[in-house]
Design a protein around this nucleic acid. Structure first.
Length: 547
RNA sequence: GGCCCUGUGGUCAAGCGGUUAAGACGGAGCCCUCUCAAGGCUCAAUCCCGGGUUCGAUUCCCGGCAGGGUCACCA
């Protein structure tokens, strides 16, 4: 068979340049020894998953701790999955978490020498190499219909055989010249398949940068490399792109491990040197009794936008992910509490090999700790940016009074005190925490543990004594006075020795006041709260809290 | 089902033949204390199972088992 003629019939494009030229167009990158070129290659579905961030972080850290390049490539070969604005969304989301690309799709950079970075715009390159493979007898047209393929699969299933297009099931592999041209003349749609030379009985050891030595079985599947619309499949695009974009380390999820044999064969058939691979273990989630990989479909709450809208401190998400990525990060963090996370020496080979269950508690703890370390001004800026995007109209109004919010934050966070409070774990929750400082959002539900007479007595007596300029000790001694007047024990320690002897203690008196002022039996220092509210509002709250 | 990956407390995990088997989150308790938060102290809780190899296995080998992933003209 005249393969050259076949290739031209199958891929008639007359504007293709020679395959060798591409080696010159996309030369090897001149980077220092050990520098890694990594990439994030999402499909533009518009859904930014935590897994994307996880992977991006590994890519970005690997590139930037080795003096390499981290780029963005868009795998838009599947038309059906395309969503408008998805690329900008990826970039914006990652930027929010402090991750930036050096080059790639929609990236402002003078390094964009390896584009186009959208696979749909690289059709010519793929077609050039598909044509080359046909000429070399390493690829062939397949005219099988979806129905035929389904039937074969069903047969293989019933016979308990491995499914797929291989061996005797690769019907179009040995089509005669006449059959091919006849099909072509009839205008039958076709795909281009790789003519696999592999044998599943051959196994070899492959070194993965994370998993270590793994066993790979040779591929024997005649996989599709060019779909009937002339667009490549992931496998083919991956081989071409990562070669010509000069990726040195492909970091991707372990779900790709099973197609590694295909990729190895593809690189070999194309005469390319394969990059190194690092297959990351998946982020898991508890689903009923068992854990499973986080899924874009089933777990929309793990969208990156979820963390933004819930107001997690972005660096907390990054630091949490870093603790999963390299478990020695936590240890390093304790030794270098004020260091930038970017100073941590990330190591791809230190990554965990088993799937990690996503732990929201841990994330919250990290977020709380980080927020507690902010100054009141920094915290204000953080909350404000959340309020601007997600807050209620009254939140927005409240945040116009920066000085007032900062006073509150100083209290809530314990700025200046010996002990930092850790009340705020997320912007959303932090903003709600401040609701009682504003009359329009102060919606108390008074529920006292004492009878009306006692409650009213405490409220009235304290109102008479209260002075806004009282410092904490004066304020508290007044609470004690009131407590004693209603028959409560003014000293907690004494009360604890013999609780039966009293109706209550000074704590109970304080609780009544606290409920009156904040609507809740729990709050930060009540004296300071009343001071922030001012005399007038404090007294009016004491008055309206009577039963 | 075939192939591949993984298996240390509830979770994340150190560990590379001999350890009282780190640490963190979470849980329990105590202290502090006007409540809460924080902080301090303390406690409970782990090597999937069975065979080897070895003086000695959580660590090495083999076999099970369990969990996960994947078997598309999706990535």
């Amino acid at each position: 068979m005249d393969l050259k003629k076949l290739a031209s019939a199958l891929i008639p494009d007359d504007d293709l340049i020679s395959a060798d030229k591409y080696e010159e167009i996309y030369p090897r990158r001149s980077l220092a020894k050990g520098a890694e070129v990594t990439r994030l290659a999402p499909s533009p579905t518009g859904f930014i998953h935590l897994g994307n961030l996880f992977s991006a972080l590994a890519d970005e850290r690997t590139a930037h701790t080795t003096g390499g390049i981290f780029y963005l490539r868009i795998e838009d070969t599947d038309e059906k999955r395309k969503v408008d604005g998805a690329v900008e969304s990826v970039i914006r989301s990652l930027k929010y978490f402090g991750i930036k690309f050096d080059e790639g799709a929609e990236i402002q950079s003078d390094l964009n020498f390896y584009g186009p970075y959208y696979q749909r715009r690289r059709a010519k390159i793929y077609r050039t190499f598909a044509k080359k493979l046909i000429e070399e007898g390493r690829a062939y047209p397949c005219f099988c219909t979806e129905e035929e393929l389904d039937a074969v699969r069903a047969e293989q299933n019933s016979l308990k055989l491995v499914t797929g297009y291989y061996g005797k099931y690769a019907k179009c592999r040995n089509l005669s010249e006449e059959q091919i041209y006849s099909n072509l003349r009839q205008g039958k749609p076709f795909v281009i398949r790789l003519k696999s030379m592999g044998d599943v009985n051959n196994k070899s050891v492959f070194h993965d940068a994370i998993k270590g030595d793994i066993t790979v079985t040779e591929n024997d599947q005649d996989v599709v490399i060019l779909k009937s619309d002339g667009i490549p499949t992931y496998h083919f695009a991956h081989a071409i792109d990562d070669h010509f974009m000069r990726t040195t380390l492909v970091i991707r999820g372990e779900e790709w491990l099973s197609s590694l044999p295909i990729h190895i064969e593809l690189f070999k058939a194309l005469g390319f040197e394969a990059p190194r691979y690092a297959h990351t273990s998946s982020l898991m989630k508890i689903d009923g009794e068992t854990k499973r990989k986080l899924s874009k479909r089933k777990d929309p709450e793990l969208s990156l936008d979820y963390y933004r809208s819930a107001g997690y401190y972005p660096e907390a998400v990054v630091r949490y992910l870093l603790t999963i990525l390299n478990s020695n990060f936590e240890e390093w963090e304790m030794k270098n509490p004020s260091a930038d996370w970017r100073d941590f020496k990330f190591r791809i080979d230190k990554m965990s090999r088993s799937g990690t269950l996503f732990d929201l508690d841990k994330l919250s703890d990290i977020s709380r700790t980080l927020v507690s370390q902010l100054s009141a001004e920094e915290c204000f800026a953080f909350l404000k940016s959340w309020v601007d995007e997600f807050g209620t109209p009254s939140d927005k109004l409240h945040f116009k009074d920066e000085a007032y919010i900062i006073r509150i934050l100083n209290l809530i966070m314990g700025v200046g005190g010996k002990k930092r409070r850790k009340d705020i774990e997320r912007a959303e929750q932090g903003v709600r925490l401040m609701d009682y400082f504003f009359d329009d959002t102060f919606k108390p539900q008074y529920s006292y543990r004492f009878d009306a007479e006692t409650v009213n007595a405490v409220l009235e007596k304290f109102a008479k004594l209260y002075d806004c300029s009282d410092d904490n000790s004066v304020w508290f001694s007044k609470v004690k006075t009131v407590a004693a007047e209603v028959g409560f024990c003014p000293e907690t320690s004494e009360y604890k020795k013999n609780p039966e002897a009293w109706r209550g203690s000074v704590s109970d008196a304080a609780e009544i006041l606290r409920i009156a002022v904040t609507g809740s039996p729990n709050s930060p220092d009540l004296c300071t709260i009343m001071n922030i509210l001012g005399k007038e509002r404090s007294l009016s709250r004491l008055a309206s809290a009577r039963v």
